[in-house]
Simulated assay, not measured.
Amino acid sequence: MLKLNVKNETSRLKAVILGTAKSNGPTPKETEAYDPKSLEHIKAGTYPLEKDMVAEMEAVASVFDKYHVKVYRPEIIEHCNQIFTRDIGFVIDDVFVKANILPDRENELDAIQYIIDQIDPEKVIRPPEEVHIEGGDVILWNDYIFIGTYREADYPDYIVARTNMQGVAFIEKAFPHKKVKSFNLRKSQTIAQDNALHLDCCFQPIGSNKAILHKEGFIQEEEYEWLLNYFGKDNCFIISKEEMYHMNSNVFSISEEVIVSEKNFVRLNTWLRKEGFTVEEVPYAEIAKQEGLLRCSTLPLIRE
């Protein structure tokens, strides 16, 4: 039996599901793009190649190996993008939540069923159909669960709006002992620089008391200010629009001291080292073209 345990984003990682780029399928058509950044690269002819993405993911796998983390991988589905495991499920405390994802991604869940089968069935939940929630919008911070959402009336018009207010209510009800705080995120179907696809695209806690933040990702400035004050200005690394576009907040913590980051994030990585973190740099620029990075392609199961 797998005994799950995840209470925050930075405790020492013991077991994780890392996505796979194998048999990723051909470059999607423009009409098949889920987000504006992928669309941009499809149009420009710079959409990432499978071999490059496989190499990038193997670099992450070897970092996990170095830190003795147990790594699970999805079963391979032919011609299917299975990189972003964070979208399809997430763990809160000792409970695995199956996400309600875009319908044509349902088979990605089937590919990790062999792992879910090792968890006590009492500890696996699936929200009802009208509840939309994806793991990229759910950030655990001890007593808090931070959730990214989109509260505007035109929610149904946005394929980039992934978590609705029913999703927030579902988590509140399922985890009554937690303080759930939601954040209204800026969405754009067409301009990647203006689109906070998930909460982890514009915010992520690191270490024991620090955070990476992007102000423009939040529709309500006071919600951004709340996070800034909660972590403290001096503990926050504020990223620009350009850095948000390149997914600087989407790094991944192996522990409070060790962070896996993209090697091109020079300003961020310099700051992290100055703050005393060990930064494990990996190449991930090709995968980033699909508006996802390190946190998006990992699904932690057990942290100490």
Rank of each mutant, 00 (worst) to 15 (best):
R303W: 14
F277I: 02
S253M: 02
E222K: 07
Q204V: 12
F203K: 02
G167I: 03
V16A: 10
K215Y: 11
K98F: 09
Y114F: 14
K178F: 08
H198M: 14
I42E: 15
F170R: 00
A174G: 11
R295F: 06
D94F: 10
Q113H: 01
V71P: 11
V282N: 00
I287H: 01
G276S: 00
G207T: 02
K210I: 05
I133M: 05
M53Y: 14
I115H: 13
V251L: 00
F265C: 03
I147E: 12
F203I: 02
Q193K: 04
V251H: 00
M247R: 02
L109D: 03
P121M: 14
C80E: 15
K178Q: 07
R267G: 00
H41I: 02
E50W: 06
G45S: 12
V124M: 13
T298N: 15
Y284W: 07
L301H: 10
Y150S: 11
A55K: 11
E262M: 09
I159W: 09
I212H: 03
D104H: 09
F218A: 06
A55V: 10
Q189W: 09
D194L: 05
P300E: 15
D234W: 01
V138T: 12
T190I: 14
R73P: 01
G292K: 01
A61S: 10
D200Q: 13
A285E: 15
P300H: 15
F84R: 03
K241I: 07
I171W: 12
D104N: 09
N100P: 10
Q204D: 15
T270Y: 08
L39G: 14
P176Y: 12
S297R: 05
P283M: 00
D87C: 05
E243L: 07
D154M: 14
W226M: 00
G167S: 01
K3V: 08
N5D: 12
L299T: 15
F84D: 03
V260R: 12
I219Y: 11
N264T: 13
R303D: 09
D104W: 04
Y72K: 08
P176A: 13
I239Y: 07
E281G: 11
Y72P: 08
M1Y: 08
Y114A: 10
D194F: 08
F277P: 09
K22G: 06
K241G: 10
H198C: 15
R186Y: 09
I76S: 13
N100F: 09
L299D: 14
M247H: 01
E225A: 05
D35L: 14
N107Y: 08
I88T: 12
N81G: 04
N248P: 10
E106I: 04
A161T: 03
E9D: 10
D157E: 14
E56A: 06
G292W: 04
F175P: 01
L213D: 03
A192K: 01
